[in-house]
Write a protein that binds this DNA or RNA. Structure first.
Lengths: 225, 225
DNA sequence: TTACACATGTAACACGTTACATGATTTT
DNA sequence: AAAATCATGTAACGTGTTACATGTGTAA
């Protein structure tokens, strides 16, 4: 349901074509929302068919820009006020960090360094965007909120990765004593075979302490699941 | 492809049943990875069929725990070292903030306050988890990395929301002149036609400056798309 | 031994991606 | 007017969600 809202949000700020939107999904919005052109174009048609947006003239280089309609604006307002945000996410970087104990510390560090470099480059690209906004325009004032959120998040990731690099440096030589083990290569992945040794550090008790239930804030939020 | 990896990651740390995994997806991992039980159980069967995990005895209250196999460990290591992380994300909170200019400042603030409260509650739940880890265990050392990432992220979101609340307080009375207009509350979507009034602040030029291309770091990363 | 929450599962549908195709605008 | 890139589009497939169904352990 939220791809619609992402498109409405962008188009509400200024008329945009599917191509324009694709550019932003690959740029500023990389950490906010993403969709491929093949998903965007059909959805724009549906939004237009529902009367939430409409075509507005024609743009440079054969683009077909849409503008938001009154109904579209109304829908946006309703989304913002009548429903709660969904907070579940999928973050592959953090997921990987939970698994880092299965590789050698140097490999963990290589991963963290790669992340660090990536996010630093992203951050360098974000700051100019913030400074390029025209705060006399209401839509740009809201965009400032979003861009600032992105910048602060990147700063947090960067400081985390720096800290993690130091932390991993203190880890003992190898997480699991034995080098990679034997057994025939599996269908999809297949590293080479090698001798199976002692049992890995898993098996026993403990584990992540299970977190308490979601501290959901509103009734609406609960229904939303 | 990454749900498999999420399951392998969890099971690598300690044997877990589908139910255990569901608890963690709703708890610590809420901001890291999420999947519903209906997706988890079939995927566990597939992982077992592929020999990456195997059933290990039986757990409390009819749970059926799995443990990772050597092949599974190998697969995990390969994922961590031979591929780059995917950084695209979907964050509804930030998406909404881009649209906040279409509602009254008070409504924008109500939204931000709700977020603030939600994330503060989350943060309170995370810190004890960090302190409950047993750093003598390799898997717990890696979990510390992930949990710390979550904590820093929450702290960043909270400070952002606090800042945003102040910022919105300085916004002029109404982003768009006319109040919400007539028409009955829409069930899903479809507001009735309504007197369309003056054109909203959109239409004209400007817009978000388009960010520069993705500063991808490795060749592998490019292939991965 | 009934009741109830726990734990697993299945089927239909919605959402998102990959691979491929087509017309339109610059550039050579 | 041929080549190259831009912009839109379609079809098949894979991933995630919703609605519903079924067995299982613990407690009334």
């Amino acid at each position: 349901m939220s791809l619609r809202m992402a498109l409405l949000t962008l188009i509400s700020g200024a008329p945009r074509s599917g191509y324009d939107i694709g550019q932003e999904f690959d740029g500023v919005l990389k950490f906010v929302w993403h969709a491929k052109p093949t998903q965007v174009y059909p959805e724009l048609k549906r939004l237009a068919a529902d009367g939430l947006i409409r075509e507005r003239g024609s743009g440079a280089r054969g683009r077909r820009p849409y503008e938001i309609t009154e109904d579209g604006l109304r829908m946006l307002r309703q989304w913002l006020t009548a429903t709660s945000a969904d907070h579940s996410q999928r973050n592959e970087t953090v997921l990987r960090s939970f698994a880092l104990w299965v590789v050698e510390p140097e490999q963990a560090q290589a991963f963290l360094r790669e992340e660090l470099e990536y996010h630093r480059a992203r951050l360098r690209g974000m700051r100019p965007l913030r400074d390029g906004l025209d705060l006399a325009r209401p839509a740009d004032r809201a965009a400032l909120l979003g861009i600032e959120a992105g910048i602060r998040r990147l700063e947090a990731v960067i400081s985390w990765a720096e800290w993690a690099l130091e932390t991993v440096a203190t880890w003992p030589p190898a997480a699991s004593p034995q080098p990679i083990a034997p057994s025939q290569p599996t269908p999809s992945p297949q590293p080479t075979a090698s001798p199976r040794t002692a049992d890995s550090p898993l098996s026993s008790g403990s584990s992540l302490p299970v977190a308490e239930a979601d501290p959901s804030h509103t009734a609406v939020a609960r229904e939303g699941r």
